[in-house]
Design a protein around this nucleic acid. Structure first.
Length: 583
RNA sequence: GCCCUGAUAGUUUAGUGGUAAAACAAGCCCUUGGUAAGGGCUAGAGUGUGGGUCCGAUUCCCACUCAGGGCUCCA
């Protein structure tokens, strides 16, 4: 109930925004303005007028002026003829009207103050009283009806709440989210950067960021090894023929980098690892005894994303995928699929991730150009996955038109701290590869059998995307086992520098990432620096520690700033234990 | 790719149609310190790149590059 009130409030606020814009720029064509998850927007065609962020205050002020005269919204129904006449000259409204006419719905207008808009309704009752706590946030371009073939409109985003406290809280949250933005933290913690000389969407991993990457990769190797995967390594490029066989070229040519014409054929950078892995499957005769065959690789993939869509680590042009392909028989599908789900859930637990849900992404028979048109196979494989999900008791939603072109998949959706929904892990069931690649094994009777199903999976997503998520998830305060520097050693003065290096060596020899701050700074300043770098532990080295084999400790979090003295050996052994427990 | 905004020392920012200012970082010096920024000095950018207007451009205009916010897409 409350949610729908908020929706009405925000939609009403969109009306108010349109009214304010019209009163300042009367020649503007208004289009539509819905409530969205955290606010609302309204799309305008300003003609030749250019609107920028600096205009938002002016509009905001006008909204506050106008709303004083707004009483309850008056509804009025009109005929299509009246509607066409009323909005003549506004092609967007006319298009909306024709849409309503086509659906044989009633055309309604809602009016408050002097502003009347085509609208299907859903408003608050006392605008002048309720519409108080709003803020315009940004100006952006948006295509009419989301299609790049349509004109570009100017979209104004805003947010609105029922109380000042709610609004302030939301604005505060937006600020907080900015603070943990992985792009900002990536720079501050010296994890990675994107060099304009190297190129857009191409990540340069610095030593500390590389530690994170390597640790996650090591984790994956270990867990996959235990789960019976075999590691392989394949090239970053391949001949055109491979991607024609896989079907990627016809379906995804636009997302692949342009071809490289060589003296022996045309090559492409791989956008995915599957075709290479399929070729490994095809290397030699496979026996039923080898199935399921699980091939894993942190494979580097390249995608030619539009330059405007690139963003930090979230959308890049070169990425390292936590990839693997499982080749199995029909009767092994369910147990293999379940195995992957279990592995995935184990990973999430390790990282303390809880805010996620499962989505069964299905094909859409209406869009056969996007999918392999084999309805029977779609039906069968979707049902397979559905059964696994139900048997494992995992809650999931079924969504159409989100599948891969070769089969249905389970996507695991996360909510990031910024409130955005991200697709993180994916498990896909591929019924098409066996035919395209002629994947075959010799069965128990010694006969060739083509019933090979492929499960594509990437529980840890892509390095780039997963690290973006982790950086924001932990706000840069990585758990001990992941922290690029686990303990910062702070000599009280230069006199104790040698002793500090000595202790550093002890830590390093035990596999603990220690680092001495050798800068000529006061102890207080060194603590400050280590805190900003979010180092979990600080060990102070001075006369007291020289006299006894102890280390005075300071911990990262403000709570518990106690600084106990601990025998070095004891401290190291507890540290090692904590690291092994991945906490 | 398209729309909007922006680009000034390593970083974060200020500023001006008359030739760039500060903080932090860096180097040196003083301080040799005991738990969240000790003090001083020095060096460091000619204002993203390329054009144009002007006696003169970092400032105005154009193009490009890159970044941010969106649209679209995401095997």
């Amino acid at each position: 109930m409350e949610n729908s009130n908020l929706e009405h409030l925000r939609h009403s606020c969109a009306h108010l925004l349109a009214a304010a814009v019209l009163s300042i720029w009367p020649d503007t064509e208004i289009t539509l303005g819905p409530a969205i998850e955290n606010g609302f927007y309204y799309d305008f065609d300003f003609g030749d007028v250019k609107i920028s962020d600096t205009d938002l205050n002016k509009i905001d002020k006008r909204m506050h002026d106008i709303v004083k005269k707004w009483d309850v919204f008056q509804k009025r129904e009109i005929t299509p003829e009246e509607a066409r006449d009323m909005f003549k000259g506004n092609p967007y409204k006319l298009e909306i009207i024709e849409g309503i006419v086509k659906k044989e719905e009633k055309i309604t207008l809602y009016k408050s103050g002097d502003f009347e808009d085509l609208c299907r309704g859903g408003h608050i009752h006392e605008p002048k009283k309720e519409l108080q706590f709003f803020k315009l946030l940004s100006v952006a371009g948006a295509y009419w009806r989301g299609s790049e073939n349509n004109p570009m409109l100017t979209r104004i985003y805003g947010t609105c709440f029922a109380t000042k406290d709610d609004l302030d809280k939301h604005l505060w949250e937006l600020e907080e989210a900015k603070k943990r933005d992985h792009r900002k933290l990536g720079k501050e913690l010296e994890l990675f950067f994107i060099d304009e000389v190297v190129g857009k969407g191409l990540v340069m991993w610095l030593p500390k960021g590389t530690i994170l990457r390597d640790l996650i990769e090591e984790l994956a190797r270990k867990m996959e090894k235990e789960a019976g995967y075999l590691r392989v390594v394949t090239p970053h490029i391949a001949k055109e023929e491979l991607f024609l066989t896989s079907g990627h070229l016809p379906y995804y040519k636009d997302s692949m980098f342009p071809p490289m014409v060589m003296d022996d054929g045309t090559y492409y950078l791989k956008g995915m690892n599957c075709p290479h892995h399929h070729r490994i499957f095809l290397h030699g005769v496979r026996s039923y005894r080898e199935l399921p065959l699980r091939l894993a690789e942190y494979g580097t993939c390249f995608r030619n994303e539009l330059s405007g869509t690139l963003s930090g680590l979230l959308r890049v042009r070169e990425m390292a995928m936590n990839d693997a392909h499982i080749y199995c028989r029909k009767d092994q599908i369910k147990s293999e699929f379940a195995g992957v789900l279990k592995l995935t859930i184990a990973y999430f637990k390790l990282f303390g991730l809880k805010d996620y849900w499962f989505r069964l992404s299905k094909w859409d028979p209406k869009h056969t150009e996007k999918y392999i048109n084999e309805p029977e196979n779609w039906k069968f494989s979707e049902q397979m996955i559905r059964e696994v999900m139900v048997e494992m008791n995992l809650p999931f939603k079924e969504i159409e038109n989100e599948a891969a072109f070769y089969g249905p998949k389970v996507d695991i959706q996360f909510r990031s701290v910024i409130g955005k929904e991200e697709s993180m892990s994916t498990i896909q069931l591929d019924f098409a590869a066996k035919k395209r690649f002629n994947l075959t094994y010799i069965d128990e009777k010694g006969e060739p059998n083509n019933e090979v199903f492929v499960i594509h999976r990437a529980p840890l997503s892509v390095h780039e995307r997963f690290l973006a998520f982790l950086i924001e998830h932990y706000a840069g305060k990585f758990p001990l086992w992941l922290a690029p520097v686990q303990i910062e050693i702070l000599p009280v003065s230069d006199v104790f520098l040698d002793k500090a290096y000595e202790v550093e060596k002890v830590f390093l020899s035990k596999g603990i990432r220690a680092h001495v701050n050798a800068q000529q700074l006061t102890l207080g300043k060194k603590i400050r620096v280590a805190t900003l770098q979010k180092v979990p532990y600080m060990g102070i080295m001075g006369q007291k520690e020289v006299d006894a084999p102890v280390l005075s400790l300071s911990v990262r979090s403000r709570e518990g700033v106690e600084t106990p003295m601990q025998p070095l050996e004891l401290f190291i052994s507890t540290l090692i234990q904590t690291i092994e427990n991945h906490s």
